[in-house]
């Protein structure tokens, strides 16, 4: 720092480097100062109007009484008010009536998408594409029926499949024949099952659950509803337990389904979403419409 200021009277700070490089005391431009004062005013105004200073547990509330939570709740109330018109209409309608109204159907599909994501997609997949052990909802192969009434029943009271393990009932050869027979049936849509397989199927008690023709249907009711116990349809190419094929079929025949005494048995349990109070009737109705429209509703 220069002891002697070589540039006197030019409003410098006296800091001089390299002979002539010096710091001047010029004021900042006016617009800049205006900006600074405006910012300070803004801070004062803001901290008066909005929650700002941390005093104790809560910040100062601010004159406007605004809070993020309140704004969120108001926003949600607005959304609910918008939905109320549709929700009220749906309340008095059956799932079939909703399906017949294009506008309400679109509303219900959009609304139920969230419900499906929260309650169903963990097992059945985000688009109803199924998962190993969990049925596909986007096809037209229904274990308990694909009408709106049957779907509603499945969601409300749940489902639990059952199949006896046959390892002590049938011989190795018989199990082998039946497993091969299911593959033949699946590949030919129920037309190419071997004579031997059919004989076993009909004489070993399989028809009690899988039906006389092997399609899982025990009886058909007027209105399209079917009577089943949840046994798989063996006359199409859709496998209840993935990956399907000979080994899968063999495993199911040997170990059965939902047998508390047999830890190797397959699991097939659908929780009762209605009875447990997890979903309301209105929510179930919306989900019925959604599931029905996934691709295979009847």
């Amino acid at each position: 720092m220069a002891e002697h200021n070589p540039f006197p009277g030019e409003n410098n700070t006296g800091h001089v480097w390299d002979d002539n490089l010096r710091e001047l005391k010029n004021p900042p431009p006016r617009w800049w100062m205006l900006g600074l004062w405006a910012s300070i005013l803004w801070v004062v105004g803001y901290s008066l109007l909005y929650p700002s200073w941390p005093v104790g547990q809560e910040p100062t509330p601010g004159i406007l009484g605004w809070s993020q939570m309140k704004e969120y709740q108001e926003g949600m109330a607005q959304v609910e008010a918008k939905r109320a018109k549709f929700e009220d209409q749906i309340k008095g309608m059956s799932a079939n009536e909703i399906l017949a109204d294009p506008g309400l159907k679109q509303y219900t599909l959009a609304s139920a998408k969230v419900l499906f994501g929260d309650n169903c997609s963990a097992c059945h997949g985000s688009g109803g594409q199924g998962n190993p052990g969990y049925p596909v909802l986007a096809d037209d192969d229904w274990l308990y029926g694909g009408t709106t009434a049957k779907i509603a029943e499945s969601i409300a009271i749940g489902r639990q499949g059952a199949m006896t393990p046959h390892k002590d009932i049938l011989t190795e050869a018989e199990i082998d024949t039946l497993a091969k027979w299911t593959v033949q049936m699946a590949e030919t849509n129920g037309e190419g099952g071997s004579e031997e397989g059919w004989n076993l199927f009909k004489t070993k008690g399989c028809t009690a659950c899988h039906g006389q023709s092997g399609n899982g249907v025990l009886a058909e009711l007027p209105g399209g509803n079917i009577v089943t116990v949840g046994a798989a349809n063996l006359t199409d190419g859709i496998w209840r337990f993935k990956p399907g094929g000979y080994e899968s079929a063999r495993y199911t025949i040997v170990n059965g389904v939902n047998q508390p005494s047999n830890p190797d048995a397959r699991n097939a349990v659908m929780p009762a979403f209605g009875q447990t109070g997890q979903l309301t009737d209105q929510e179930i109705k919306k989900l019925v419409v959604y599931v029905h429209e996934l691709g295979g509703g009847q």
Partner: peptide, 17 residues
């Protein structure tokens, strides 16, 4: 539709949404 891309139906046909 991406999930699923396609679905096998019981009549042996493939369905896309």
């Amino acid at each position: 539709e991406r999930a699923p891309l396609f679905v096998l139906q019981s009549d042996g046909s493939i369905q896309n949404k």
